[in-house]
Design a protein around this nucleic acid. Structure first.
Length: 744
DNA sequence: TAACAACGCTTTTTT
DNA sequence: AGCGTTGTTA
């Protein structure tokens, strides 16, 4: 047995041994938060305060949960102890809901739908309710529904002020949405916790069962919990109030998901006798890094003061670099990695953290080009890829035939000549009888509704489904998938395509089979795959990590690159637009999280111009950027700035750029800085002229269209050409559909 | 029903 | 630019 207490400093020790009553640990970045939580669990077990299954410990990601489980068992070092209630909010709620599904009229084998399914379902509802899809974007409705669920509001609890048109429609959809989910025996992410809260509120005996079991509650990343998660905790806690929350208000970055910083700021109001401990010594980063982070975050008003310090030495200064554009930024970063860092650090200890996912592309392209191994964390999740999703929907439907969303996805995939019109008929049939699409398919065959060809195909699909279902009861799930993919014709369809994309899809499906082997049953596999978090995927191998700052929360690396620190990107204008100063403060916390991921070396950079929307070459959509206000907020005692003079001479200011931010403090400051620095005033400032027509064609030119033949261009509007065709007369055509005639 | 043309949205962050 | 959706036509 390792003496875990000897490994702790005084405050950490206090946080571990104060087991009774409510405790709040304000843990600065890198101050040994996980160490405290794991040691605390060990302490509870060693002091025989409780058993492993009596600890409820909530983390933010599965990765964090697994890591804690490992570390605890390493410290205990004897037998392996089970901690069934150590996990994410969602995975724990999943477990509780499977056990008590009937209490909210679900069956225990319910399916968890993802965001894409959610949108699909909302679209269906809009269609059947005749609500205008253009005026009520499904994405926005999904967002409202999520927000209501985050506030623990069922449709009947929602109050709409001012008769807001969108909210009223969204609420109408919400009502139907919940009913449809129930009929399909499906839940969305929000439901996992909402249903459990409903059960705990409604059934005292169930609540008491859990309360009696959970002797101690621990919560990680408490600053990012939202209202319903807090409510859930309060429902599970007993009068003893043995709850320990660990968090850092400076790292609260999920307000858009309903997270409320006030949960941690006002925690003292919820619990009298609250003990509060601050962990202020940072064991992760060098002083220059920590001091940079501290000087930045001190610009925030509303925070619990902490005094983070490090004794790991000054270390390297934080390097701030300017690049000509996004591409040279990627080149610059890769050069530093190749020439300097790869000789000192493992590639897996290097990471590139970006504000928005689209920034990853330039880095990917560059790394591929020069052969630096990298991995992209987050992004399009493996199980969201279309072929994987198709395969999963087959399995989901086999597992649970009332899953209409899956049915719709696969019924005509591969093509079975059961198109939209037939599907609509099945849909109406199902709705009129209040049965699932799958059941409706069986019933509708008896009626004379579908065309003979459709009937034949539908019949053969159903026969397959029934035989797969039978197989799923006897055989293992891996061979089931193989059979399904073969017999459905899915594999054949991909093989016939003979494209590189189809080949990689087949590869991915193979990978899916491999990953299925790790699970005991089909249902266990389906549950787990839908609760996976973005950073749960592979962490093996010597590869540079590329991910968003949000995904990087809780992680650390020897060296970190933070590209794209520009006004207009970071702080993100949407965030400012939505929530003003509060938005900027959250962006600043995000910047704080980003900086404090670095242990030894940190590179911050900005590009003087950046491409948006993938367009290239032409001037018309090149956004000129200026460095982020956050760069100026970092005390320059800790930084080393290098702006390439040659690049600075190319510095282009676009006077017409984004008039909203033109007058922002950051813009003016940077402009002044720039002018002072060069002492040349307006001389270097060029204006980009917007060319009205940006197609390669000119009026009067003769062109060819594959359908309309040859014609003469009579007018150009952007990329739209008005052409007088020899045979067809005047037509408006987009330039990419015509080509120049050969003789020109 | 399938194939093609045209359009329009994307890019803030995610369990 | 690239993709998914919508609309039109065979």
């Amino acid at each position: 047995m390792i003496n875990y207490l000897n490994l702790l400093n005084n405050q950490q020790k206090l946080a571990v041994t104060t087991t009774e009553g409510p405790l709040q640990v304000l843990a600065g970045a890198g101050s040994g938060k996980t160490k405290v939580l794991t040691s605390r669990i060990v302490h509870l077990i060693e002091q025989k305060k409780c058993f492993g299954q009596q600890i409820l410990c909530v983390t933010f990601t599965n990765k964090a949960a697994n890591e804690m489980r490992d570390r605890v068992n390493k410290l205990i070092n004897s037998r392996s102890i089970a901690f069934p209630w150590l996990g994410t909010f969602h995975s724990i709620c999943n477990k509780m809901l499977r056990k008590n599904a009937e209490a909210v009229n679900l069956k225990p084998n319910f399916t968890i739908i993802d965001t894409l399914d959610q949108i699909k379902l909302i679209k269906n509802i809009l269609e059947s309710e005749n609500i205008d899809i253009k005026k009520n974007p499904p994405k926005q409705i999904a967002y409202y529904i999520d927000q209501w669920k985050n506030k623990a509001q069922l449709p009947d609890d929602v109050n709409i002020k001012n008769q807001d048109f969108h909210l009223t429609n969204s609420l109408k959809v919400y009502k139907i949405y919940q009913k449809r989910l129930l009929v399909m025996n499906c839940v969305d992410f929000g439901d996992l916790i909402l249903h459990v809260v409903t059960i705990l509120k409604k059934f005292k005996d169930i609540k008491q069962l859990y309360q009696k079991n959970f002797k101690y509650i621990l919560v990680d990343e408490f600053q990012d919990t939202n209202f319903i998660q807090n409510l859930w905790l309060k429902l599970l806690i007993t009068e003893k109030n043995n709850i320990c929350v660990v968090g850092d208000d400076d790292q609260s970055i999920y307000s858009w998901r309903g997270a409320e910083v006030k949960n941690i700021l006002n925690f003292k109001d919820d619990f009298k006798n609250l003990k509060s401990i601050k962990l202020e010594q940072n064991y992760r980063s060098t002083e220059n890094i920590i001091n940079s982070a501290t000087s930045l975050i001190s610009n925030n008003e509303d925070r619990l003061e902490k005094n983070i310090w490090s004794d790991l030495g000054l270390g390297e200064k934080v390097k701030i670099k300017s690049y000509f554009d996004g591409i040279s930024e990627a080149v610059g970063v890769s050069d530093i990695i190749e020439q300097v860092l790869s000789k000192k650090y493992k590639l897996s200890e290097i990471s590139v953290l970006v504000r928005a996912a689209f920034q990853t592309r330039e880095f990917e392209e560059r790394f591929i080009k020069i052969g630096l191994p990298y991995k992209l964390i987050g992004g399009l999740k493996f199980y969201e890829r279309s072929e994987i999703k198709d395969a999963l929907c087959y399995l989901r439907l086999i597992n649970q035939s009332s899953d209409d969303i899956s049915y719709e996805r696969i019924i005509n995939n591969p093509r079975r000549s059961i198109g939209n019109s037939s599907l609509k008929k099945i849909h109406n049939f199902a709705r009129s009888r209040e049965i699932s699409l799958f059941d409706a398919s069986q019933e509708i065959l008896k009626e004379n509704i579908l065309k003979p060809k459709t009937i034949h195909n539908l019949k053969s699909f159903l026969i397959h489904m029934i035989s797969w279902k039978k197989k799923s009861e006897n055989d293992d799930h891996v061979s089931l998938l193989e059979t399904v993919l073969d017999e459905s014709g899915y594999t054949l369809m991909l093989k016939n395509e003979k494209t590189p994309e189809a080949d990689s899809k087949l590869e991915n499906l193979k990978e899916l089979k491999t990953s299925m082997k790790g699970y005991a049953s089909l249902s266990e596999f389906l549950e787990n795959i839908s609760l996976q978090t973005s950073i749960d995927e592979d962490w093996d191998g010597e590869k540079i990590n590329i991910m968003t700052i949000h995904s990087a929360k809780g992680l650390e690396f020897d060296t970190v690159f933070l590209p794209g620190w520009e006004e207009g990107l970071f702080p993100h204008p949407k965030s400012i637009e939505d929530r003003g100063t509060e938005g900027v403060e959250e962006e600043r916390r995000l910047a704080y999280v980003a900086i404090t991921r670095a242990k030894k070396e940190l590179y911050i950079s900005f590009a003087n111009q950046r491409k948006f929307y993938g367009r290239q070459n032409d001037n018309y959509d090149l956004y000129t950027s200026i460095s982020s206000r956050f760069i100026n907020e970092i005390d320059d005692k800790f930084t080393e700035i290098s702006i390439d003079e040659n690049q600075a001479d190319e510095f282009v200011f676009d006077q017409d750029f984004n008039s909203n931010s033109k007058n922002s403090p950051g813009w003016n400051r940077l402009k002044n800085n720039y002018n002072n620095q060069h002492n040349k005033k307006e001389k270097n400032i060029k204006t980009i002229t917007f060319t009205e027509n940006f197609t390669n064609f000119t009026v009067g030119e003769t062109v060819v269209h594959s359908g309309f033949g040859t014609g003469k261009i009579i007018h150009i509007d952007g990329n739209k050409l008005l052409i007088n065709f020899d045979d067809q007369g005047e037509k408006k055509v987009i330039d990419k559909f015509v080509s120049k005639t050969a003789n020109e």
